[in-house]
């Protein structure tokens, strides 16, 4: 085993979190990501292989699907035409891309995205009050499992609704994590 010490997207040794009134904003570094893009003309094979690899079928546009893996959850969300992102606990899935690739084989192109993204979670009763000042997405209308691509703080993000109104994930480019965290906190301070 190597002895290199990882940093979180915010540059710390451990995740940051802050509660402003009734919304908690947390850096969530302990997730692995891999993208799956269906190969041309492999719809049937891909659906079958993806389900075999993850236990669930890749969801339609605007949606995510989740399944329990170990003590955590594996989530698949739609990211583009014939393209999905898989999210799983890092500890058990740090080599998620390799795990998926070995099962889906030439049904999909799998790309490691572990460190391409930073996830921030908003939990609490007034999440929507914060998000409506950050994103054009209709966060108030999102049901659990809904996901959308949106712009927050000028950064292209995915917005996932884990639980309607009270739990959302903002998944943004990792290099912009500090700016994103600042924007989330600033808006929480202003809106709540």
């Amino acid at each position: 085993m190597h002895d290199l010490v990882p940093l979180t997207p915010l540059g710390g040794d451990s995740a940051q979190s802050e509660t402003i009134r009734n919304v908690t904003i947390s850096e969530m570094p302990d997730f692995a990501y891999a993208s799956m893009a269906m190969r041309l003309g492999r719809k049937t094979g891909f659906q079958r292989a993806a389900k075999k690899a993850t236990g669930i079928s890749p969801p339609p546009p605007g949606e995510s699907a989740a399944i329990k893996v170990g003590k955590g959850m594996l989530t698949i969300f739609w990211t583009g035409a014939d393209q999905w992102m898989v999210e799983a606990p890092y500890a058990s899935h740090f080599d998620l891309a390799a795990q998926l690739g070995s099962t889906v084989k030439d049904n999909a192109s799998v790309t490691e995205q572990n460190d391409g993204w930073a996830r921030f979670d908003l939990t609490g009763d007034d999440c929507v009050s914060v998000l409506e000042r950050l994103s054009a997405a209709d966060s108030a209308g999102m049901q659990a499992g809904a996901v959308t691509r949106t712009t927050i703080e000028h950064l292209g993000c995915f917005l996932l609704c884990r639980k309607a109104a009270t739990h959302f994930s903002v998944i943004c480019p990792r290099s912009g994590a500090a700016s994103m965290y600042h924007a989330l906190l600033t808006m929480a301070q202003s809106a709540l």
Partner: peptide
């Protein structure tokens, strides 16, 4: 990929941020 050669089997995705 999408408009000129949709017949090609090719998938692209940015990984700029994923690797130091």
């Amino acid at each position: 990929r999408q408009c000129l050669w949709p017949d090609l089997d090719v998938q692209i995705i940015s990984t700029t941020e994923a690797w130091a």
